[in-house]
Nucleic acid binder design. Structure first.
Lengths: 360, 360
DNA sequence: CTGAAAGCGCTAACAG
DNA sequence: CTGTTAGCGCTTTCAG
């Protein structure tokens, strides 16, 4: 192994100073040679580069930071790493950031961003990063106003709860909701239920607007009994569906605000002795990988997460470099028809359910 | 809104200096008052605290860092955020770290840790964190030796490829593999296949050892034809199973090194016109949430990820604070029997497969 | 083209 | 109990 230490794990990190001594020049010259800024004689530069790689130099980010220069690190703030959607976005963002030769660090804040208990929470990120990406953020009221005043570049991904002057890149949830319901309408469904998710990011509300849009366009008024509340979790989809199926006039189709709740809905349908899609159709939103693994495979709306992520990174980079900003972008979702949606059951022909039994 | 700015998003961050002026004391006093180290008059401290909160002071991590003091930030290095297992660990680690009033930042490195292309890759983390957690790390050969020489505290989670002096906290994969196979043996299976995953972390190899252990203990010699290679991805499980089922003497049970490959295996079994578990039993490893959502529900081995994560954090903290270290810990996995494993089919009674058709 | 000085925000170590 | 000094590793500014 002729190569010297690869330069990452030594007890005492090597500094510019060390490299300078090794190369027989001043610290400043090393800084210039390594950064490429300013004039350095080609010969000197070569010597410095050699010394640096021999010693395994790597810059101290904190010091860089403190001088206020760019760190080439992008920060991601998320509230939930269990979410498949968020992870797909993170993955895509990673790739996009990497493509620009920058690094990505992730901060998972669990509670709402801006909670006073840990207000310094993202101070870490703020201090360390050139720019911040908020992925599907749960933001505390008022926090977004503060963000708006910040000088640090940032972009929100898939946030739609509040209007803001911050740049937002997101999927078009409302149109997606419309398409989901239109699909069900075309299959002959008339009693279509909606199961909403948590309100944190506003996505559920947008999907619900799309639901209402589509029904209205079809001349059907929204029956409040058919709008159930969930929290994006599978269990909540199960429970909400239980209530829906117990109605005097149960729905023949269910549009869940995300795939996980749709899975719960399918379980509940089966638990009531009914079949998907013969008795009840179910459609979700997101098209997470599991959607094509469940049985029957879930019909859903796919968000172009890669495109969204790339656009967000691009926009953030524009803001970091001071280039012209674009402010906001919406990407349409795509209907994916699989096996969980089918023609509405023929009216009058009672399904083979056991609704009475399920009641107690 | 009587409260002043919550102190996170101002253009010019407020420094100790600012607080000092506001409180009419020296910078040092502020530092002491805020950190709690050293003597400060109660009255002065109160004034300082008031000033700090009024101004919305929050410390500059980089500066702290540069002085070599603790940052109260733990870093996590991962190679893959799509993995459900990794995300569950991260979640549990988050909680554990938070319980100690520290923060967690995550670095997702995609390629193997130690790739020279980005050797400074975790330098960021190294500089910023009090300690490092490696979750299911894919480490480049030689990199671990460097890690061992580092003075920064670190703990590896679920790594078993190489022996190392670094502290490792992990599940007992070998015993888990043994239990999986014993379960199948007890159901009467004798031709049991194993589908391995990628070798990065050594987990697959350990599970395979357990597989061999159990067969040996039952007086069955390992048939190399029944050991297939996968990469932990669903598709690879599907493909491997296709080959296994095409054997002259196909297996009646399949032990996949993780749940995702087990899903692929189940698909493949069905694609061959066979049933799970009547014709072929399938068992996985990990017990990811989807395992109980697929149909039939997957039998598998659950790793105590929460316990593992907490133990890892504890160990790291011990190393950071200089307390007695424990070096390594193994947590047993737990067999979860669901619907995908059943009695071995009666010999002689041919399954209703279409193996010939599947061949071409 | 290269170097010296100053200072980013913070805290050990030593004076008061 | 409080303040002063010095310096972490780096880069900006100004002199060579």
């Amino acid at each position: 192994m002729p190569e010297a230490k690869l330069g990452s794990a030594d007890a005492a990190p090597v500094t510019l100073q060390n490299v300078a001594e090794q190369a027989g020049v001043s610290v400043m010259t090393v800084s210039r040679a390594l950064s490429g800024e300013g004039y350095v004689a080609e010969k000197t530069r070569a010597r410095v580069l050699a010394a640096a790689s021999e010693l395994g130099y790597s810059p101290n980010i904190s010091a860089k930071m403190m001088r206020g220069s760019r760190t080439n690190v992008i920060g991601v703030l998320v509230n939930d790493l269990q979410s498949t959607v968020i992870n797909e976005i993170i993955g895509a963002v990673s790739v996009a950031v990497r493509a620009h030769n920058m690094d990505l660090i992730i901060y998972n804040s669990i509670e709402e961003l801006g909670s006073s208990t840990r207000s310094g929470i993202n101070q870490i990120m703020r201090g360390l990063c050139d720019g911040l990406l908020f992925i599907l953020p749960r933001l505390k009221d008022g926090y977004i106003d503060m963000l708006e005043q910040s000088s640090l570049p940032m972009v929100l991904i898939n946030y739609c709860r509040t209007e803001t002057t911050l740049p937002v890149v997101r999927g078009d949830n409302r149109m997606g909701g419309r398409e989901a319901v239109n699909h069900l309408l075309q299959l002959g469904h008339r009693r279509i239920a909606f199961i909403g998710g948590s309100a944190h990011t506003g996505q559920s509300q947008e999907r619900q607007r799309g639901y209402a849009d589509a029904l209205k366009a079809a001349g059907i008024s929204v029956d409040k009994q058919l709008v159930a509340a969930g929290d994006f979790g599978q269990l909540s989809g199960f429970q909400a569906t239980g209530k829906l199926l117990a109605l005097a006039e149960p729905p023949t189709a269910i549009f869940a605000a995300n795939d996980e709740m749709a899975f719960g809905a399918m379980d509940a349908v089966r638990a009531h002795g009914l079949r998907v899609p013969q008795d009840v159709s179910v459609i979700g939103f997101d098209d997470i990988p599991a959607a094509s693994h469940v049985h029957p495979k879930l019909s859903t709306l796919r968000q172009p997460l890669t495109a969204i992520s790339e656009a967000a990174v691009q926009e953030l980079l524009r803001r970091i470099t001071g280039a012209d900003a674009q402010q906001r972008a919406e990407f349409p979702s795509q209907l994916v028809v699989r096996e969980s949606t089918g023609p509405a059951p023929v009216a009058g022909k009672a399904p083979r359910g056991k609704r009475a039994a399920a009641k107690h």
